[in-house]
Simulated scan of single mutants.
Amino acid sequence: MRGRVLSIAGSDSGGGAGIQADIKTITVLGGFATTAITAVTAQNTLGVFGVLDIPAEFLRSQIRCVLEDIGTDAFKTGMLGHADNIAVVAEEISGYRKVPFVLDPVMVAKGGALLLKPDAIAALSEILIPVSTLLTPNLPEAEALLGSRISGEDEMIAAAKALHQNGAPAVLLKGGHLPGSRLTDVLVTCDSVETFTAERIETRHTHGTGCTLSGAIATLLAQGRPLRDAVMEARLYLRAAIVAAPGFGAGAGPLNHTVTMPSDGPEQQTL
Rank of each mutant, 00 (worst) to 15 (best):
R182A: 15
V259G: 11
H207A: 11
V51W: 06
V231S: 12
D264S: 15
V171W: 06
H164V: 01
R235K: 15
G16S: 02
V108P: 01
T209S: 12
A162Y: 00
D12L: 04
T34F: 08
K24T: 12
H205Q: 12
S214D: 12
A160N: 11
A142Q: 08
A109S: 15
K76C: 07
L134S: 05
K24D: 04
V99A: 00
I242P: 00
T203A: 09
R182H: 15
R4I: 01
G249N: 02
T219E: 05
S61K: 09
P100W: 02
A36V: 02
P118Q: 10
L124W: 05
T38W: 03
D119N: 15
Q269W: 13
L173W: 04
T25C: 11
A122D: 15
A250D: 13
S132M: 05
M107T: 06
H205F: 14
A17F: 06
R4Y: 01
L139H: 01
I70L: 14
Q165S: 15
V186N: 02
K76W: 00
G15E: 09
T195M: 13
G247L: 03
G265R: 13
I127E: 13
P179A: 12
T38C: 10
V259L: 07
R200N: 05
F75D: 01
G71W: 11
G81W: 03
L220K: 07
A244D: 14
N138Q: 10
P140T: 12
D22M: 10
Y96I: 07
V28C: 03
I86E: 04
A36T: 09
G15P: 09
P179N: 07
S7D: 04
E57R: 08
P262M: 09
E233R: 13
G147I: 01
L271E: 12
T35S: 10
V5E: 06
G215D: 03
G3C: 06
A245L: 08
E68Y: 08
E233S: 12
V259I: 14
I217H: 09
T203F: 08
G31S: 06
G112T: 08
T195Y: 02
L221N: 00
I93N: 00
A90I: 00
L80V: 03
G175E: 09
N85C: 14
V88I: 14
Q165M: 13
A90L: 00
I157V: 15
R4K: 15
P105V: 08
G81A: 01
D154N: 14
C190I: 10
L6K: 01
G18I: 04
P169A: 11
Q165L: 14
V5K: 03
H257T: 09
Q223E: 02
V186C: 11
V106R: 02
R97G: 01
Q62P: 03
L187F: 07
V48C: 08
T25I: 07
A120T: 11
G78A: 04
T209M: 08
S94N: 05
Q43V: 05
L238Y: 04
L187V: 11
G152T: 04
